[in-house]
Design a protein around this nucleic acid. Structure first.
Length: 467
RNA sequence: GUGGGAGUAGCUCAGCUGGUAGAGCGUCGGACUGUGGCUCCGAAUGUCGUGGGUUCAAAUCCCAUCUCCCACCCCA
């Protein structure tokens, strides 16, 4: 008993790290369904899957996302390789009789650090990796544009809340290369809307905006900053700070008291350069052509530096205050920023955790997977037969549960029932000696006798009819 | 990083102003040794999140701490 208690305590010590979680069986079926439908829909739009590393050089994210964003400055999980390099450098120095001056530490060790250490981060998003892969694998030599999608976990060291985790999952699609034709953005949006539609996602709302490019956005940002400054004292502390750091972000404010003021601010649509304005008109026209319902939202801005022109966001119902289930847009300058050839690009990321959450809230969870056949056997002779038939039925694609130890029939049927089996195959002395097996339909309680040769055929037919 | 709420059995929770734990569900066993779902009977499982303090006595009061949930910041 004391041993049992000790074991239990041992087990209790371990728990998933803050912001991470286990995805358990009935739910994982839904994850699989989402990913399978994504693959099918994306493939129908000519997208291919790319699989990427989960960690990359820290520099890749610092360069693409922007050094001064929260994502890079404090939300990345970063480490060095080798892990304890700083310590070992200090030890080396001490052993060599050199003093360690904390004040000039970084400078003193700069060259050895650069030589021996790699700074690595778990990816906080996928776009930078996709671009790196495009450049590294010379994909500009493929027919353009290159259309790629990927799934997987991302990592951000944020405080968890509803629909937000430190390890979270994204479904990501990017169109790299080619032109900035509005049809590319519109088709991408059409694709994700089709995907959501296929899943039966409810309360889907698409918001779009154009945030200009390198030429016109800075001018607008300045204008907005000037206008906001005039009413600075009427804004809350967060917005006041954002006037300096990122005036566009003020437009995102949820504070009730600020809404009226923000409504009176200049709209970016009136300050786009001619190319951007033309492009935006094109995107809207293309969306209409495709029958995609959208809402223009001039206050929709993007947090990450590399976005330009088209931005969009999709919200769904059943979520908490983090209700965006997809965000995306064009990022024509990013590839060059990462040392690649000038390459236009656009893409989106779906928050898969939130997508799943919304589907669950709407009751779209698929039924837990039952078994097709539970084999209720009794007696050693029957067991040998049971093992053989289990193997055959499984080879035919049926899901079969074969209890490893003998059970009373009552118990066996109870188990079959709890596991959601459709049929119980009853194999006892009677059946084995007569060669006539009993198949019981659990839902109705009906029983029928089959010879071994006919059983598989019958099950196949019954299954074909129901599914 | 900031604020609010919550931690009692595997799950959902009860436990009044201090007297060292209970229910329902689930699990397992039996009634029923070749026929499940229903019913009835029985059993197991808790260092009451953790550490400290007050007290003759703490799940209950005080302090600290951890974790989870929700929201803010930020963002998908």
């Amino acid at each position: 008993m004391s041993e049992g208690t000790a074991k239990k305590e041992e087990r209790r010590k371990f728990q998933a790290i803050k912001g991470t979680r286990d995805l358990l069986p009935p739910e994982t079926a839904l994850w699989n369904r989402v990913e399978q439908i994504a693959q099918k829909v994306f493939a129908s739009y000519g997208f291919s899957e790319i699989r990427l590393p989960i960690f990359e050089p820290t520099e890749l994210f610092a360069r693409s996302i922007g050094l001064d964003t929260d994502v890079v400055s404090k939300e990345m999980f970063s480490f060095t390789d080798p892990a304890n390099v700083i310590k070992s450098l200090v030890q080396d120095a001490l052993q060599a009789g050199l003093g360690v001056d904390l004040k000039n530490f970084e400078q003193a060790f700069q060259s050895s650090i650069e030589e021996k250490v790699q700074f690595i981060s778990l990816r906080p998003e996928a776009t930078a990796s996709v671009c790196r892969a495009y450049i590294e694998n010379n994909m500009q030599q493929l027919p353009q544009p290159v259309k790629l999608y990927t799934f997987g976990p991302m990592f951000r060291r944020e405080r968890p809340q509803k629909g937000r985790y430190r390890q979270f999952y994204q479904v990501d699609a990017e169109v790299l290369g080619g032109s900035d034709a509005p049809g590319i953005d519109a088709e991408l949006i059409e694709m994700v809307m089709t995907f959501f539609d296929r899943l039966g996602l409810e309360g889907v709302q698409l918001d779009i905006n154009c945030i200009g490019d390198k030429k016109c956005r800075p001018k607008y940002a300045e204008l907005l900053r000037a206008e906001l400054s005039k009413v600075k004292d009427k804004l809350g502390p967060d917005s006041q700070r954002r006037i300096e750091t990122n005036p566009l972000r003020v437009l995102d404010s949820k504070l009730e008291s600020e809404q009226k003021l923000i409504e009176g601010m200049p709209h970016i649509a009136d300050h786009l350069c001619e190319e951007c304005a033309e492009n935006y008109r094109g995107v809207k026209k293309e969306l209409e052509l495709r029958g995609v319902n959208y809402r223009e939202n001039w206050r929709l801005v993007r947090g990450l530096d590399y976005y330009s022109r088209t931005t969009f966001e999709i919200t769904a119902k059943g979520l908490g205050s983090q209700n965006a289930v997809c965000g995306g847009g064009r990022y024509d300058g990013l590839m060059e920023l990462l040392g690649g050839p000038p390459t236009r690009a656009t893409g989106f990321a779906i928050g898969e955790d939130r997508l799943i959450l919304s589907l669950q809230e709407a009751g779209k969870t698929p039924a837990p997977q039952g078994r097709d056949v539970y084999i209720a056997w009794m007696g050693e002779k029957a067991y040998a037969t049971a093992v053989r038939v289990a193997k055959n039925l499984r080879a035919a694609g049926l899901s079969v549960e074969l209890p490893p130890v003998e059970q009373k029939f009552g118990k066996a049927l109870g188990q079959a029932d709890k596991l959601g089996a459709r049929y119980a195959l009853i194999l006892g002395d009677n059946e084995v000696s007569s060669g006539e097996w009993t198949l019981k339909t659990l839902a109705t309680g009906e029983q029928a006798k089959f010879k071994e040769a006919d059983l598989l055929d019958h099950l196949r037919k019954a299954r074909g009819l129901s599914s």
